[in-house]
Amino acid sequence: MNPALKNTSTAWLSVVMVVLLAAVPYVLYVSGNTFWLDIFTRLVILAIAACGLNLILGLGGLVSFGHAAYIGIGAYAVGIPAYHETYGGLDAIASYNGFVHLGLALLTSAVFAFITGVISLRTRGVNFIMITMAFGQMMFYAIVSLETYGGDDGLTIDLRSELPLINLDSPLSLYGLCYVSLLVIVFFTYRIRHSRFGLTLQGAKSNEERMNAIGVNCYKYQLTAFVLSGVVCGYAGFLLGNFTTFISPEMMDWTRSGEIMFMVILGGAATLWGPVIGAIIFIVLEFVLSEYTVYWHLPFGLLLIFSVLFLRGGVTGALHRLGKPAVRSQS
């Protein structure tokens, strides 16, 4: 597609997204459909996580299969300090203060991403997929084994994070925070994509051997992207913990990582709004299919298989192909 045309279509899509995600839930909520606001909140949080994963998967071309772990880390960074503030113990982190929770969520995510990234980024391809998966599952089992925080049964968050100006107990405020966060993160990924850093990542994705040949050590850029990606997902976890107020290891199971990956790919990796569109498709599918049958995973799985077999480049990619003029002729 013509770059100028592509820019305008992305700009239009951005306007539509910004307006839609603000207006629809607000109208629904004010007209008394509070249930829909919950759906939208979940959607936006998942979209943030998908944007986070997209930093490494779409931009960097590295298939990380352990990103649910960061969501879990973010959520437990809310749950654990709140638990200790209520029941005592671990004075160092016990708190209801949102900044403590947030700081803990981002810091722990960054550290976990750094340590696992240092090791896993030395490998490529199938090894990288399996190693990220294993590290994700390690986090899952670690939380399961912590009986203090409910282990398998999960942990109820009695009090949401306390933040100045924003009351997270109000569904509308919570949605507002999620919505603004998503826009900031989308804008942030947009800037990154076009920066020198983003260009380097895309080069490494396209042809790593060539990057080496022009004198670039890709490892440190990929590690940075991996950490950024983990931190964004950790932030999504912080929001998710405050939204559901019930957290359990189940939210970091590797199949959750698969779902986030599904969103990124189906929406179209490496496009600006692809992950958000993917999250919308996921939520709609989950909602519609589960209306019809409790066995909604079956059509969902079939759809996933079919989309891999027949729909390359995701929905966004397919739409782009529809609007794409024939390949440039040699002049």
Binding site: R191, I192, H194, S195, R196, F197, G198, L199, T200, Q202, G203, S206, N207, R210, M211, I214, G215, V216, Y221, T224
Partner: peptide
């Protein structure tokens, strides 16, 4: 880099020679 424009291809090489690319904000 098949997926990038010719100019981006060369820009990457220019950038590689210029040193690190830890610039996240400015439009390259």
């Amino acid at each position: 880099f098949q997926e990038l424009s010719l100019q981006d291809n060369v820009a990457l090489a220019v950038q590689a020679h210029a040193g690190h690319a830890f610039r996240f904000w400015r439009n390259a």
